[in-house]
């Protein structure tokens, strides 16, 4: 769901060790990279390395059918052109129910068929969904290894709150990191020190830095990145001057990392 805000479709690259996804948004400003290791799944099997090209907008709509207690099983057969999702309620209070349809989800603008509403209403039961797989050229080159000058670690809920609040006030934000202070400031068209609305940084913030960094970013993207906050208690902001920002959420068996190109003065 976090990825679908940034990219509409992408390849899930599956191998024996993990599932990975890397895709750039249409405007080539942000890139999202996700990895979920095999131990992160209750059971995991991959007989053959294969890319699963998925319309993320469609996938997100289907995932909305799931409740927290549902176990979701994803399957793709060899040479298959559908991704098969099965939701199974942990407690089978109701008698087993099977629901299946082929949904050609590539046309995201098309409305759901009426029976989709029926499917939602019957949860938590047993639902079987298929999503068409599309072939898409993957981004073959991985993001180059970068040594960052600063790393700021803070509670993800605080980062979410800061960027959300500041997005109400402006379109851009400047992030400055010095030895003891992280300053996240809203920028106005004619910014001056007096015009900036500084947000206080809460406790639990760790700053690691080699040199002072000051970069400006589009808040819209940071707000979208922060939607991954529920995946991890902490978020790391890795920055160097004139280098894309890395916003990293690490969880037990994987990560979601978002890269954002800075804004620069003319």
């Amino acid at each position: 769901k976090s990825c679908s805000i940034l990219v509409t479709d992408a390849n899930f690259e599956c191998n024996e060790e993990n599932i990975m996804l890397q895709a750039m948004d249409n405007s080539h400003i942000a890139l999202v990279s996700v990895e979920i290791g095999a131990p992160g799944f209750t059971s995991y099997r991959c007989d053959r390395t294969m890319p699963l090209g998925v319309d993320l907008t469609s996938l997100t709509k289907v995932l909305r059918c799931a409740k927290d207690e549902n176990i979701c099983t994803l399957k793709a057969a060899d040479e298959a052109d559908v991704l098969n999702l099965v939701y199974d309620a942990k407690s089978a209070f109701f008698s087993p129910f099977f629901f299946a349809f082929m949904w050609h989800g590539r046309d995201a603008s098309s409305p759901f068929p009426p029976f989709f509403l029926l499917c939602s209403a019957l949860l938590p039961l047993f639902i079987h969904l298929n999503i068409s797989l599309s072939s898409q050229t993957p981004i073959t080159s991985s993001w180059p290894e970068t040594k960052y000058d600063t790393r700021v670690t803070l509670p993800s809920a605080e980062f979410t709150r800061i960027v959300r609040d500041l997005s109400q006030l402006g379109e851009h934000v400047r992030i400055e990191v010095s030895k003891e202070v992280v300053r996240i400031s809203k920028l106005k068209a004619k910014s001056s020190a007096e015009d900036e609305d500084n947000d206080s940084i809460p406790t639990g913030v760790v700053i690691e830095m080699n040199q002072h960094v000051s970069l400006t970013f589009s808040l819209k993207y940071l707000v979208n990145f922060s939607k991954s906050g529920s995946l991890s208690g902490e978020v790391q902001l890795l920055m160097s001057n004139d280098v894309p920002l890395l916003v990293a959420y690490d969880f037990t068996q994987g990560y979601i990392r978002c890269y954002l190109a800075p804004k620069i003065g003319d």
């Binding site: 405007s27 080539h28 400003i29 589009s218 280098v243 894309p244 890269y259 804004k263 003065g265």
Partner: peptide, 14 residues
């Protein structure tokens, strides 16, 4: 005036 850089410009830097 701020100008949005694209990620591809950083890719090309290698």
């Amino acid at each position: 005036q701020l100008k949005q850089k694209s990620l591809t410009s950083f890719f090309s830097k290698g």
